[in-house]
Amino acid sequence: MSPDTERVLGQIDRGEMWCGPDAARAIAARHEKAYGAVFGRPAAEDIDAARADALAPITGDGVE
């Protein structure tokens, strides 16, 4: 294992970091409480359109 892997696994073992499905649910619940039900949006019908919408604020005009 790399030193980084050993460090992260040690943090998990010591309880310094929380990971896994329960952690993901807790984080999602906190975000939903703070920002609204953004996780309940319908899935994108067209992945290319969804990607362009996501990149538009970064590129200024979407992806060509």
Score class of each variant (00 low, 15 high):
M1E: 07
S2W: 08
P3W: 07
D4C: 02
R7T: 08
R7W: 02
V8S: 06
L9I: 02
Q11N: 01
I12F: 11
D13C: 05
D13R: 12
R14A: 15
E16D: 15
P21R: 15
D22I: 02
A23L: 03
A23Y: 02
A24T: 11
R25N: 14
A26N: 09
A28S: 11
A29C: 03
A29V: 06
R30M: 10
R30S: 08
H31V: 08
H31E: 14
H31K: 09
E32Y: 03
E32R: 08
A34T: 11
A34D: 11
A34M: 14
Y35Q: 09
G36D: 06
A37T: 13
A37R: 09
A37F: 05
A37C: 05
V38R: 10
V38P: 03
V38I: 14
F39C: 00
F39N: 10
A44L: 06
A44G: 14
A44D: 01
D46I: 01
D46G: 00
D46A: 00
D48V: 03
A49R: 13
A50D: 01
A50G: 12
R51F: 12
A52L: 00
D53Y: 00
A54W: 09
A54S: 13
L55P: 02
A56V: 06
A56F: 02
A56R: 14
I58P: 04
T59D: 02
T59G: 06
G60S: 04
V63N: 01
E64Y: 04
